[in-house]
């Protein structure tokens, strides 16, 4: 149990997928303009991550030992079909959200955080439960970073940013400061005695 909690906290805060490993930066900068949209994209990503983690566990158990060279291709196909499924579900349940997410919904496929999750889970030999904890932590970490970024950007819109900095440059600096703040969590490692 302790082990699972540790994996969760480590991937949520200490080794945050977005701010420590630089994963999923495209949606991180692309969808963080509005808080509500950012929150929902975060939730959709967590869902895709959980399904991917389960599928990756199954693939690792039965298929990949026989054909290791299919690792990348099989993972990406699983991710692409899950995203397709999520896309159809959201379109049916909430057309408004579907329009708000726009191109970033199918682009969850190319969110590197998800492929990274599947690959890392494989290389660290995680079981099904450990993989789930990792997916929840990683996805939660991505959603957390996205929501934080969106909140800051909504505030930044109201303040007087120099014209030359507007757009991507100021977002980079905001992300840098956020990442700096998250480095504070690195202390958790030593104090938890791990």
């Amino acid at each position: 149990m302790n082990e699972l909690l540790w994996i969760f906290v480590a991937s949520l805060l200490v080794n945050n997928f977005t701010l420590y490993y630089f994963l999923g930066l495209c949606p991180f900068f692309g969808v963080s303009g509005r808080l509500t949209v950012a929150f929902r994209l975060g939730m959709a990503t967590i869902f895709v991550m959980i399904i991917t983690s389960l599928c990756a566990s199954a693939l690792n158990a039965w298929v990949l030992p026989h054909a290791p060279y299919l690792r990348l291709i099989s993972f990406i196909v699983v991710i692409a079909s899950t995203v397709q499924f999520v896309e159809m579900t959201i379109k049916k349940l909430s057309p408004v959200l579907f329009r708000a997410l726009g191109i970033y919904l199918p682009l969850i496929t190319t969110n590197c955080a998800i492929l990274f999750l599947a690959l890392t889970q494989t290389s660290r030999d995680y079981g099904v439960l450990e993989g789930l904890a990792f997916a929840l932590g990683g996805g939660g970490g991505f959603a957390l970073a996205l929501v934080l970024m969106a909140s800051i950007r909504e505030e930044a819109e109201l303040s007087s940013v120099p014209a030359i900095l507007k757009g991507t440059a100021i977002n980079m600096f905001i992300a840098g400061v956020l990442s700096l703040a998250f480095m504070g969590f690195a202390g958790l490692f030593s104090s938890a005695g791990n």
Partner: peptide, 19 residues
Amino acid sequence: VLPPGGFLMLGAVLLLFAV
């Protein structure tokens, strides 16, 4: 060389390009 440096560096380069 730590993660924040990456964001700050790219931010600085994009700023340079804007200028």
